[in-house]
Lab assay of single mutants.
Amino acid sequence: SRHTFEINGERWTVEGVSEELKEILRAAERASNDEAERLLRLALKLI
């Protein structure tokens, strides 16, 4: 499935992501810059 999210003013669209990964991306959208970066690094390990 496709998911579009915005982090630090940048929009991203990813396809074929699991519900778990979507949850991480949604958390990154709400997080501070440092926390968002940490969550994105974690998410990339899952891809």
Rank of each mutant, 00 (worst) to 15 (best):
A28G: 02
R38N: 07
A28M: 07
A36P: 01
I24Q: 02
L25F: 14
E19I: 07
I47R: 02
L40V: 05
L21C: 14
N33P: 15
A28D: 00
E19R: 04
G16F: 12
G16W: 11
E19M: 07
R2F: 11
R2E: 09
I7T: 02
N33R: 15
N33C: 12
K45Q: 13
R41V: 08
N33T: 14
E10R: 11
I24E: 00
S18F: 05
G16R: 06
L44A: 04
F5L: 04
L46P: 00
A28K: 01
R38A: 10
G9Q: 02
I7K: 01
S32L: 08
G9P: 01
R11H: 11
D34E: 14
A43S: 02
E35T: 06
A31M: 05
E23H: 12
F5V: 05
E23P: 01
G16C: 12
S18G: 08
D34W: 11
E10A: 08
E19H: 08
K45P: 03
E23W: 10
R26L: 14
S18M: 04
E37W: 13
E6D: 08
N33A: 15
S32E: 12
E6H: 09
N33L: 12
E37K: 12
K22V: 15
W12P: 00
G9L: 03
L46Y: 10
E19N: 09
L42N: 03
G16N: 15
S32I: 07
K22F: 15
S18T: 14
E6S: 03
L39Q: 01
E15P: 05
L21S: 03
R41D: 04
E29A: 09
S32W: 06
K22G: 09
N8P: 01
E20I: 12
E10S: 08
R41L: 13
E20L: 08
S32F: 07
I7E: 01
S1F: 09
L46F: 08
I24R: 01
E20T: 09
I7P: 01
E15D: 10
N33D: 11
R41K: 12
S18E: 04
E19K: 07
G16V: 13
L39F: 06
R30D: 08
R26W: 09
E29H: 06
I7S: 01
L21T: 12
R41Y: 10
R11K: 14
E20G: 08
L46I: 14
A43D: 00
E20Y: 13
A36C: 05
A36N: 03
F5R: 01
E20M: 09
E10T: 14
F5Q: 01
E35H: 05
T13E: 08
T4G: 03
L39T: 01
E29W: 03
I7R: 01
E6F: 15
E37A: 13
A36E: 03
E37D: 11
G16E: 09
R26G: 07
R11W: 13
T4V: 14
V17C: 14
E19F: 07
R38F: 09
A28H: 02
L42P: 00
G9E: 02
T4E: 09
R26C: 06
E29M: 08
I24W: 04
T13C: 13
L44S: 03
I7F: 05
T13N: 04
R30Y: 09
V17L: 10
I24T: 03
I7G: 00
T13L: 09
L39R: 01
L40I: 07
E29R: 04
I47M: 13
A27W: 10
K22L: 15
N8L: 15
R38Q: 08
G9A: 03
L42H: 07
G9H: 02
R11M: 15
E15V: 14
L40Y: 10
T13A: 05
L21Q: 03
S18I: 04
E20A: 11
V17N: 05
D34M: 11
N33G: 15
E20N: 08
T13H: 09
V17W: 07
A27M: 13
E23V: 10
W12M: 04
K45H: 10
T4Y: 11
E37Q: 11
E15C: 15
I24K: 02
S1V: 13
A28N: 01
E15L: 10
I7C: 11
R26M: 13
L42E: 05
L39A: 02
K45D: 09
E29C: 04
S32D: 14
R26N: 08
E10K: 12
G9Y: 03
V14A: 05
N33E: 14
E10Q: 14
S1C: 15
V17E: 05
I47N: 02
H3E: 15
T13M: 07
W12T: 01
G9T: 02
W12A: 00
R26V: 09
F5E: 00
I24A: 03
H3T: 08
R38L: 08
R41C: 12
R30W: 08
I24M: 09
E37G: 08
T13Q: 06
V14M: 08
G16S: 09
L40G: 01
E23S: 12
E20C: 11
A31N: 03
V17G: 09
E29K: 05
